[in-house]
Design a protein around this nucleic acid. Sequence first.
DNA 1: ATTATATAAAACCTTTTGGTTTCATGTCAA
DNA 2: TTGACATGAAACCAAAAGGTTTTATATAAT
Lengths: 123, 123
Amino acid sequence: MSASEKHDVFQAIADPTRRKVLQLLAEGDLPISEITSHFSMSRTAIAKHLHILSEAELVSGRKVGREKRFRLQPEPLAELKQWLSFYDQFWDNKLSILKHVIENSGENGLKVIEKEKDTTEPS
Amino acid sequence: MSASEKHDVFQAIADPTRRKVLQLLAEGDLPISEITSHFSMSRTAIAKHLHILSEAELVSGRKVGREKRFRLQPEPLAELKQWLSFYDQFWDNKLSILKHVIENSGENGLKVIEKEKDTTEPS
DNA sequence: ATTATATAAAACCTTTTGGTTTCATGTCAA
DNA sequence: TTGACATGAAACCAAAAGGTTTTATATAAT
């Protein structure tokens, strides 16, 4: 399925089938044949999608007996999230500031309280 | 450039050139030729990328005089963000809950206060 | 040992992508 | 009105994407 460079996260999630595979694996590890049973295409096709997802490190597969079980590995989505966060400023300005605070709050965490009245409107 | 369905956001951002175009437009509206000057490919190629970005409604173009100025339209990125948020739970569990609250807080907004001591640790 | 299961790997095919070049058209400036 | 500029549109192209079928190999179960 090509001899090009490795696929990145952006390419990996571009295909709806692959997104569905990720969603499936979110519910738990599965072997190829069982993943395939959720689609109307050949096992080989799914195996190729899994290969692309592997290249992007969104899934990992380990042989167990005669089957190969795949597991979701969501860490690379962080890159996507970071990419997205850049565009918050052009878009949803009110909440983006708050979210930035949260994303950089580290292990300490935060406390959230519902506001009675808006006093910080004009940013 | 094909007779298929319209491109969606996931496909639109899959290409590095298109991501760079978005980044450029983030600094301000630009006509095609000026966008092109930032790349080492033909104007026609860039025009096609802009067309795909338009289909995904990530940019919009309006004629002004003899040029066509393009503008960033980041709203559709919300879909991507929402898609991403699903995977937070498998990954960054502590903050994902808080973020979910924020994302669903509507126009009212929230008030955020730094915590002195963690009392809600065990979720 | 035999057979059924689970996957791997290769060859092949069609459509889409991402680019090019060439030609046509509309608009601004002199 | 004559160029120069800015874009649009069409035809073409190579490679990658997304499938298929066929063949081979390893493991499990009988």
